[in-house]
Simulated assay, not measured.
Amino acid sequence: MNIKWDEVTIDHLHHYEKVLPLYDSVFPIGVREPHEVFLKGLHYTKNQKPNSFRFLVGLDGEQLVSFATGHYLEVVNAGFIVYIATNPLIRGKGVGSKTLLKMEELLREDAIASGKSNLDGIILETETQEIVHTHEEKENCLKRNQFFERNHYKKVNKINYLQPPLHMEHEPIPLNLFIKGIQMDEFHRETIIKFIHAIYKEKYSLVNGINEQVLKDSLRKMELDQESS
């Protein structure tokens, strides 16, 4: 399959609406951001350089085969991959890994553009089986975790991570945190905590617009509120 890559930007929304049905069908509601948060991210990337928001789309002709979104966080020189999904009609052909590698490449370009030689790490969240509801969601959750492990991401066991609530009526959500870096053994607890604080500030505060007290409460529940970013 010859995948053509395109990026959704605030000035180029051609494939934006095509992605949303796949997004809605793949991710459980608790970890699914409102659609308008994507647009906020696209506005953000124009005004917060060298920080960035990448919205990657993979196409085979006009058929959507995959998408991924991610942020470059300059303050910790790290990438944060938010979502990645493949069209269920074409899974098993390596599209997911190709999409992940392409997103990593884009985030690496952002690090180099900011004056760094490379990314220090890439971090992402995935669902735990405890938060999914249907049999299909549980299968997707297991496959997603295995997928990241095959692509050299390692699960963080040092911190019981919580995603702040994406919807006002919800509570923080326990998720798995995976990380990938140039030298994985050097990712100590202090480094991971800095990554989490950067994600909370640059993504969940400035892009999602989550209330500051809600974010503080989520950090407190992880016992990270007194640890500096």
Rank of each mutant, 00 (worst) to 15 (best):
V82Q: 15
V95I: 14
L89M: 11
E109M: 10
T86P: 12
P88Y: 11
L89A: 15
E104I: 01
I90R: 09
G115K: 02
Y83M: 05
L100S: 12
D110W: 02
E104S: 07
D110L: 06
I81E: 15
I90Y: 14
R91W: 07
S114R: 13
N87E: 04
A85Y: 05
D110R: 06
A85D: 11
R108E: 09
I81M: 15
G79A: 04
N87H: 07
L106R: 14
R91H: 11
L101Y: 12
A78M: 13
K98C: 04
F80H: 10
E104L: 04
G115R: 02
G115Y: 01
T99Q: 11
N77I: 00
E105H: 13
V82N: 15
M103S: 06
Y83G: 09
L107A: 06
F80V: 02
N87T: 00
K93W: 04
T99H: 08
K102D: 00
A113C: 08
T86S: 15
R91V: 09
G96I: 01
T99K: 07
F80A: 08
D110H: 07
V95N: 07
G115V: 01
S114L: 09
T86R: 05
G94Y: 01
K93S: 08
R108T: 09
T99M: 10
D110T: 02
V95S: 07
S97F: 00
F80G: 08
G115P: 03
G79V: 01
P88A: 14
